[in-house]
Each structure stands twice: as C-alpha cells, then as structure tokens.
C-alpha cells in the first residue's frame, strides 16, 4: 500500500506510522500515549465524524478525524 493518512486507512490492517502531527503539542500528546513515528498501529473502530479508535501497543486511543488526517502510515502486512 502506498503511504496514506490514517483517516483513509482500512480497519484492521497492520500499519506503520511514518509521520506524526505537525503541531508539537499534539505530537507530544500522541507520543505520550505511544503514538509516535515508527510504531505499529491498527484501526479498531469507526467513530462519528470520521474519528477512529486506534490500537497502539495493546492500548486503545480515540482520535478525531482532524488529527488522523495529519498522521501518515504505511501498510506493513
């Protein structure tokens, strides 16, 4: 799969986060929850308004569509 943003990625596919959020504060918040460049993630559940629940290191994080649109991923299946 070519690189895409996380809001366009399919549910359930193993993904590699290749670029995190450009806003330093948001990036730090994401990193504190384990969501940083180089980690494997997968989308678990769709939320209203385009948000998703992500699986990262066994934890679950709900993220809105605006943030997802800035996170670049690659399929690693």
């Amino acid at each position: 799969m070519t690189p895409t943003t996380l809001d366009r990625a399919p549910l359930g596919a193993p993904l590699l986060l290749t670029a995190t959020h450009p806003d330093a504060n948001v990036a730090r918040r994401l990193a504190s929850l384990g969501l940083r460049r180089g980690v494997r993630v997968s989308l678990v559940q769709k939320l209203a308004g385009g948000g998703r629940i992500l699986s990262v290191n066994g934890g679950r994080i709900a993220v809105d569509a605006g943030v997802l649109a800035h996170l670049m991923v690659e399929d690693v299946a």
């Binding site: 559940q45 629940i53 709900a62």
Partner: peptide
C-alpha cells in the same frame, strides 16, 4: 508477550458503545 493484536472484551463492548449510531 503482548496483547496488541487481540480483540478484547472491551473492544467488543466498544463496537456498540462507540458506534456512530448505537453509541449515542
């Protein structure tokens, strides 16, 4: 070990609890 890829009971509950229609 790591439970990263397991579908947990919480995931199953969340399929309803955070569903765009059923959640609200």
């Amino acid at each position: 070990g790591s439970g990263a890829e397991r579908v947990s009971t919480s995931d199953r509950i969340d399929r309803v609890a955070t569903h765009p229609v059923a959640g609200p």
